[in-house]
Design a protein around this nucleic acid. Structure first.
Lengths: 336, 336
DNA sequence: CGCATCTATTAGAACGTTCCATTGTCGGCG
DNA sequence: CGCCGACAATGGAACGTTCTAATAGATGCG
């Protein structure tokens, strides 16, 4: 039982190979009647389109490579789902690779994508990615876009990190807090610096000195740090992201302090768990669906129009107010 | 600036096209010297291998389609990472698609994989998948394997669900509990029935009547159900999985009861968060890395040897004892 | 009626690799 | 000296599509 090819469909339908090919693509140059006949023949024989052949001839794969820095992180997992959905809607297949935060693996995957070949790449650069990588992609002629984490230049979609922590800090200030610290964000990248900056600016504007409790983005480490905080320390914590906030919660609980009552806490990313956490986490969030769509948009723009300058879409985040900041009366209200 | 082809490399190296092709595949039929010369020429010109052409000619894509039922679920995300890693190690590229538990989407993705074409498919069937799907895959001649969730037959890798809940229940019995209920597992699939069965058998063996608190696998619902449990109700809960256990924890906390002190709780899957949860969750787990490797193994076996019967690898889980079951003295010890 | 124009269909090359069969070369051996 | 086998390299077809250009037939128009 051989595989059925266009050739076979053509013979069955009694038309030429190129006619059958055209008909299967539903090309308007053919009469509707002819298209129908071919379609029926194809169905009868069980014809299966062979993308690899099409890909080779046309050079278009309608496939996008998606390089995820850490798929086991719920935030990136959800973002991945959003991007995949958006690309799917645009008629593209997603080829996913998980770099697990390894620049080496990331490089290997990019080379594979280049060989595949994919029409373009969306990536969240692994921490430790050499800044020269973008020049290389450019040199390869591989259309690319970054999401969340990005390079100085190139197509990009991401939240406005600075504005996000600024909103969160201002909210805590409004609730009366003065000793507010920033927890997390030890990595040296644009996300960390942006979030720290938003917090610092809001503090400075209020005439207060910022305090940075630097730690890696790990639940365990954040928990230990929070548990060790003296009672005379900060009364509110602006956390780098929700993972850090979850860690801080666990540490505070173990130390007998309840976030939202004894200490105010805000996260960043508004992952799904934030809404059901104990206590429910106040968090800065952008719609990951919107972010995924934005990423798909800037990349596809890059593919269809390679000569126009790369777009950068910076999405404005909003604060989802829940219990952990101590403003539970306003449960589930959004500001800014 | 045209793309560099094998033809160009051959000309640069001063050999025939087929020689260059052989050299680039590092074929031992060629002298090492020749291979070196060609390699150098390729590097000089910046040759990039074109998989789509190779794929078309050879019919092999060295690509495996991975159909994930819900990538935003941490358990499946981690499993995905494990499978991807194992396939990568075996020299295969993973093409991921997220079905988001939609049989329709799942079907569309499978058809795409078939067209691509991929060498095989690993899937975790979306809930509501028609049982006839496996016949179709068989008929398509598409090698396939299921992980965690599976069909009655066909290649499969998954944990021994029955054994898992049996271990957990027996552990709770040993701790002195008698009113033990099973929480979750409302779905009609092999995983639910298997886990429920393991629990029921252990209860029956101890001469106790099982109690099934059926609910869908959703944190919010599980939380509400747990919060509403009367004090005269079960003293221990065997949860369908960690998500349900997390939900139960939140519900109990809100009701003023602390798991591990007032109620004993066990989860299933041992997701990463279980170890840092408050209180740390006792959970039945299999190594997701091992599971990923097993899935890759059974599929590749199917691909390389289509005529041998499909393998089924049932991995024995073990209980990771932490705080939530109330046996915290034995912190982090494993049994069975 | 002849020529241009349009529509529907067709023929055949092309894409870049892999695969198969073949050629050339060299040393050893009868 | 001619034949053989082993080794190294080569030539050319084949894979299943898409693409370009060409063809046949119908229609319009002066």
């Amino acid at each position: 039982m051989q595989r059925v090819r266009i050739k076979d469909v053509a013979r069955e339908a009694g038309v030429a190979l190129s006619t059958a090919a055209l008909a299967l693509r539903d090309d308007s140059r053919l009469r509707e009647e002819t298209r129908r006949v071919v379609r029926e023949a194809a169905a009868r024989l069980g014809y299966v389109y062979d993308r690899s052949a099409a890909m080779m001839r046309s050079g278009k794969s309608h496939t996008i490579g998606l390089l995820v820095c850490e798929i086991t992180n719920p935030f990136y997992a959800e973002l991945t789902a959003g991007i995949e959905e958006a690309l799917d809607a645009a008629g593209y297949v997603t080829m996913l690779a998980n770099t697990a935060e390894s620049p080496t693996r990331q490089r290997r995957m990019l080379e594979r994508f280049r060989e595949q070949p994919v029409d373009g790449v969306i990536m969240m650069p692994a921490s430790g990615t050499p800044p020269g990588l973008i020049d290389e992609l450019e040199h390869w002629g591989l259309p690319h876009a970054t999401v969340v984490r990005g390079f100085r230049r190139g197509a990009h979609a991401g939240p406005d990190n600075r504005a996000g922590t600024k909103i969160a800090t201002e909210h805590l200030l409004r609730l009366g807090h003065r000793r507010i610290a920033f927890l997390g964000g030890a990595a040296k990248n644009s996300v960390s610096t942006g979030r720290l900056e938003g917090y610092s600016r809001a503090m400075a504007k209020a005439g207060l000195t910022p305090q940075h409790l630097s730690c890696p983005t790990e639940i365990g480490v954040a928990a230990a740090l929070a548990q060790a905080l003296p009672l005379s320390g900060p009364t509110a914590l602006v956390c780098f992201n929700d993972s850090v906030a979850f860690g801080a919660t666990l540490g505070l609980l173990r130390g007998g302090r309840l976030p939202g009552r004894d200490v105010a806490l805000t996260g960043f990313d508004d992952v799904r768990e934030a809404a059901v956490w104990y206590p429910r986490l106040t968090s800065v969030g952008v719609s990951l669906k919107a972010l995924g769509q934005a990423a798909a948009r800037v990349l596809l723009q890059r593919i269809t129009n390679p000569d126009s300058p790369p777009q950068r879409e910076i999405l404005r985040p909003s604060l989802v107010i829940r219990e952990s900041c101590g403003a539970s009366r306003m449960e589930n209200m959004r500001i800014a």
